[in-house]
Write a protein that binds this DNA or RNA. Structure first.
Lengths: 181, 181
DNA sequence: TTGTTTGTACAGTTTTTTCTGTATGAACTA
DNA sequence: TAGTTCATACAGAAAAAACTGTACAAACAA
């Protein structure tokens, strides 16, 4: 089967590329390969199919399919009469990018925002404390300025995520071609 | 030193937050802590200072400061009379974000583009091969469509990176406050 | 009810990554 | 020139992460 083989090779190249780049999504190459396999599978896959195709344990398949779901790269499919869980890759890579972007950075925004708020309160208390030295006060003021800068930056980042989530970004960077949603 | 301690605590909270979020830049918490320390250090740091402050080996400091430099999060500073290498964090977090974005995704774009190009050629050869089965041809056509979709997506991503690098993004998501460059 | 199938928690193993100490080379000093 | 100070390459140790097999719980079948 010469043709079948050539087809397989063309697919494998892409799957391997996905595997080598999925770290951008915080996932391992194995998980990327799993995604790639599912991407070219033209029907939903069960954990058993993945185990068979990738030669890895079902436990692994289960945990990594969950990781893929968390990032909305795959989702459950339903098919009547089939008892096993079925999964397929989500169609919209633009949306996946946005989801990734959103999940990763929103989390960061909220962690920073909380920490900065707390520290700013403390530093302001320190500044208005009459018992501390002039020298320390100066240092604290510098830190306050730095924290304000970070605060501003994260507010910007938050608005940036908004722009992706609301799809406004597509006004600035339009999707060419008919593949648009 | 009650005030000094409180100041330290406020700083540490932010440094720890940086450490816990630096994975978004593909770096380890240790490296994040190193960055955080340098961020609040109001003068350039030497490897020896980092070793002393973080209690880690100089070798570690050397390799992680290089990782930070690669992402342009820190850069060398010059100070006459000082023989040791000096490093300080870069001021512009917006630019750092853009640099990260650019470095990470451009690389991905070029890897995908190359792989897709190669595979598309092979699949087109396959399609116009008269000896292969109708069934296989159908499958190959589906794959071609999928690759075209990915190709389009990466063209979009490439334009997206352009928009960040050119700072056009700031038209859509402006930097508020006087902290702007 | 009992038996079967399926997914996942958990403990342990293997693999990978991070970190350290030693050794070396480059840059500067005298 | 030789001596000193620094950064980093490299090998091995320590720590973390990925992966597997077992065991169990939930869902369903009969």
């Amino acid at each position: 089967m010469e043709g079948k083989e050539k087809h397989e090779k063309a697919r494998e190249r892409i799957i391997e590329t996905i595997a080598q780049n999925i770290h951008l999504y915080g996932l391992t190459p194995s998980t990327g390969r799993q995604y790639g396999m599912m991407y070219f599978q033209n029907e939903p896959s069960t954990l058993d199919v993945m185990t068979e195709k990738l030669g890895m344990s079902k436990t692994s398949m289960s945990t990594s399919v969950r990781a893929l779901s968390d990032l909305k790269l795959v989702e459950r499919a339903w098919k009547k009469g089939v008892r096993k869980d079925l999964y397929h890759t989500t169609e919209d890579w633009y949306q996946s990018f946005i989801d990734l972007f959103s999940i990763k950075w929103r989390r960061s925004v909220s962690l920073y925002t909380a920490a900065i708020k707390k520290s700013l309160v403390e530093l302001h208390e320190l500044i208005s404390d009459p018992t501390i030295s002039e020298e320390l006060k100066k240092e604290v003021q510098i830190d306050i300025d730095k924290l304000m800068y970070i605060k501003n930056y994260y507010e910007w980042l938050d608005r940036l995520v908004d722009v992706f989530e609301s799809h406004e970004i597509f006004n600035l960077v339009p999707i060419n071609d008919e593949t648009k949603e």
